[in-house]
Amino acid sequence: MSEKDLSYSHCRQNDTFYPFASLRLCARPVWFRFVRVRVLFFLICWLSMFTSFCFAEKDQTWQGHDEVEAHELDRMVYEERQLTESGPAERPSNLKIAQVKDSQETSEGSDPWEDEEEEIDSIYDPLEPMNRAFFQFNDKLYFWVLKPVATGYSAVVPELGRVCIRNFFSNLVMPIRAISCLLQGKFEALGIVLVRFVVNSSAGFLGFQDVAKQALDFPIQDEDLGQVFAFYGIGPGFYLDLPFLGPYSIRDAVGWGGGLFINPFDYVVNFWPNVGIRVYDIVNKTSLRIGDYEAMKEAAIDPYVALRDAYYQYRLHLIER
């Protein structure tokens, strides 16, 4: 092959090599002739691209944190202040004095805890006797069946494998998260969900590895239909402790049921294999969390109420995010 055959051969000037010269049709700005300036130009271009990339990524994660924290913390501090110091609302002038005074005096001097307060922030539970019975059932189910099975399973499968399997199953239910994000108008979260799915399904070996989390710092977006209902102003209804399924509010139970219709996975797999897969998923997840339930029960005076409230608070936490 002679030099004449190369497409850029007509662009050779002063024996300097320009690989993409033909694209520019040999028309370059005047300053391009000075090599140092040219190098500097490219350097600056790359540098600014690189930094802007870093900036964009950092910006996303940090801002997300800061905004959520700032809003949340503000509210919490405000609530605490209401709880401990403000006292009755009709005495605004006392507010300042109360803040200056020692905490112990003020807390005993005013009556910050009103009766309604306890009613508002707990879930309605009219079916308590039934729920307590099912709570006992689930408790026994855990200690007699689930825990022994999960312990045996964890003796066979190493922890790393179990984490991978957990990731694989959580990657499969992506459509529920995506649709929930979409319905709530959380487009940023929707983007993260989709990118996560694509990246983890390909680079993460069918979702066994959570590459998106490790490499891109895209955390899992915990969204479901129950949160969508809450977003549109539907309250939790009342509390249910369902056998096998555990604690739910009416709203979230409906959301869970709806999730069964959204996920393409459930249309592909037949009923009994699907149940088997779900049970396996639960055993796998439980094997990674042995000890948590015991600790909760150990710390509680009334485990049923403790679980009910923990569930309620956790759902609120997810909804507010």
Partner: peptide, 19 residues
């Protein structure tokens, strides 16, 4: 302390008031 949004004090308050 609140862990994953579950406040310990709130949780105990519910239990105590229930009892």
């Amino acid at each position: 302390i609140s862990i994953q949004g579950v406040s310990l004090v709130n949780n105990y308050r519910k239990q105590f008031s229930s009892i």
